[in-house]
């Protein structure tokens, strides 16, 4: 078997563009999923029962489905139910954003609830309003606990973008596999794909470790 690694360099441009789409998709998803998560967390923590239940239902729904299934379902169901035809990228974005919002909602809720009740009581005892208690005491502490978990979610999201290749979104996995089928250079392209993901993902994983060390909870 002869290996021709030149195929990778020849397609470096295309692969780079694929990686760009991966990053773009991940960033766009997070930009939607962070506010989405905040909304879900607030709903879950609100004293209005229907809101809390709706949020819990949404979260349980997406936590308990394979992401690939959500992607396929979105691809087939969205156009039929809304009458709008979505581009593959938009479909992918919807599926990913819904999925990650559910996880973020849990992260934010758990982060806020992990702050001891005594802290808000001490702030209330000083005469602060509920909003001031949140802003000055609870959220700054919760943010420290949430940061590493959010970074972890980002790393997972980055990897999960590879799944949208099945609906022909031109991100890295799709691009690499397309070149593979066109050039028949299976081992070279698949190894290059793995190597590129590794090169992009490894530093992210290490950064997340650092965040856990820096902001990890010391009880």
């Amino acid at each position: 078997m002869t290996l021709d690694w030149a195929i990778v360099w020849e397609n470096a441009g295309a692969l780079a563009r694929g990686a760009e789409i991966t990053v773009l998709l991940a960033v766009a998803t997070m930009l939607l999923a962070i506010p989405g998560g905040v909304l879900l967390a607030l709903m879950r923590l609100s004293p209005v029962r229907p809101l809390a239940l709706a949020s819990a239902g949404f979260t349980e729904f997406f936590r308990n489905l394979p992401l690939l299934l959500v992607i396929y379902a979105a691809y087939y169901i969205l156009p039929l139910t809304t009458g709008i035809s979505f581009s593959p990228f938009a479909t992918a974005l919807v599926a990913l954003a819904l999925n990650v919002s559910a996880y973020n909602g849990e992260t934010f809720r758990a982060g806020i609830q992990s702050i001891r009740k005594g802290q808000s009581e001490a702030a209330l005892a000083l005469g602060m309003s509920r909003a001031q208690v949140m802003r000055e005491v609870v959220l700054p502490q919760a943010a420290r606990r949430i940061a590493p978990v959010l970074a972890s979610t980002w790393v997972s999201l980055f990897k999960d973008t590879s799944l949208v290749s099945v609906i022909a979104v031109g991100e890295l996995a799709y691009t690499a596999m397309r070149i593979r089928s066109q050039s028949f250079r299976v081992l070279e392209m698949l190894t290059a794909m793995a190597a590129i993901y590794w090169a992009l993902g490894y530093p992210q994983a290490k950064l997340t470790d650092w965040l856990y060390r820096r902001f990890g909870v010391r009880e």
């Binding site: 078997m1 790393v155 990897k159 999960d160 590879s162 799944l163 290749s165 996995a173 596999m177 593979r180 299976v186 081992l187 698949l190 190894t191 794909m193 793995a194 993901y197 590794w198 992009l200 993902g201 490894y202 992210q204 994983a205 290490k206």
Partner: peptide
């Protein structure tokens, strides 16, 4: 361990099925 954290499942599956036989 760190490599498996960095590489998506899809990539490992595809590599294992298509590329591993060649190696």
């Amino acid at each position: 361990i760190d490599s498996m954290r960095a590489i998506p499942v899809l990539v490992v599956l595809v590599w294992g099925y298509f590329a591993l036989p060649l190696v």
